[in-house]
Amino acid sequence: MANIVNYIQDTYHELAHKVSWPTWTELQNNTIIVVIGSVIFSLLIFVMDFIFGINPSTYFWKGVLGLIYP
């Protein structure tokens, strides 16, 4: 039981005193970068799905799942 208490105390000390946490400004900037990257990546996936999902006989968009499951 003493080992568990020692582990929790060491973990708290490590997180409270040794970890360098980002500032609020750095956190906001990194969040904006992640959101922009996610939007760009999702748009690329949508464009690929749109291009590969067009049925040539009807020119109706069914998406990639429409090609897999006719």
Rank of each mutant, 00 (worst) to 15 (best):
V47F: 13
G53T: 00
W24R: 13
T11W: 07
Q9I: 15
N6G: 09
N29A: 09
Y69L: 13
Q28H: 11
V35I: 14
W61L: 01
I33N: 08
L44S: 12
F52M: 11
T58A: 00
K18E: 10
V39C: 09
K18F: 08
N55R: 01
L15V: 15
I4N: 06
H13P: 09
I40K: 00
V47K: 04
L65A: 04
V35L: 13
Y12H: 08
I68W: 01
I51R: 00
W21S: 04
N3C: 13
V47I: 10
F46D: 11
P56V: 04
I45H: 03
V5F: 14
I54R: 01
A2I: 08
G37A: 06
S38V: 04
V19L: 09
L44K: 08
A16F: 15
F41Y: 08
N55D: 15
V64Q: 00
I51D: 03
N55V: 00
Y69K: 13
I40N: 03
G37W: 05
H13I: 13
I45W: 05
S38R: 05
I33R: 06
I36M: 05
G63N: 01
I40Q: 03
T23A: 00
T11C: 07
V39Y: 10
Y69E: 10
W61F: 07
S57E: 11
I33E: 13
M48W: 10
D49F: 05
P56T: 03
I51G: 02
D49K: 00
V39R: 07
V35T: 07
H17C: 15
V34R: 15
E14Y: 14
V39G: 05
V34K: 12
V47G: 07
S20E: 12
G53H: 03
V5K: 11
D10M: 13
Y12E: 07
K18H: 13
A16K: 15
L43C: 13
I33V: 12
P70L: 04
G37Q: 06
F60C: 11
H13R: 11
K18W: 08
Y69M: 13
T31D: 10
D10Y: 09
N6A: 12
D10I: 10
V64T: 04
L15Y: 06
L65K: 09
I4D: 08
N55I: 03
G37I: 03
I54N: 02
L65R: 04
L67E: 12
W24G: 08
I51E: 02
K62Q: 10
G53E: 02
L27K: 06
G37M: 08
M48K: 09
K62N: 09
L27Y: 09
N29P: 10
I68L: 15
Y69G: 07
P22H: 04
G66K: 01
T23Q: 02
A16M: 14
Q28C: 14
I68S: 03
F46W: 15
E14T: 11
A16I: 15
N29K: 11
S20F: 11
T31Y: 14
W24H: 14
V34C: 10
H17R: 14
H17N: 11
I8R: 01
Q28K: 12
W61M: 01
P70F: 05
M48G: 07
Y12M: 07
S38C: 15
G66E: 02
G37E: 07
K62V: 12
F52W: 10
G37F: 06
P22D: 00
I32H: 06
I68T: 04
S38F: 12
V64A: 00
S20P: 05
I32W: 08
S42W: 06
Y69P: 05
N55L: 01
S57Y: 12
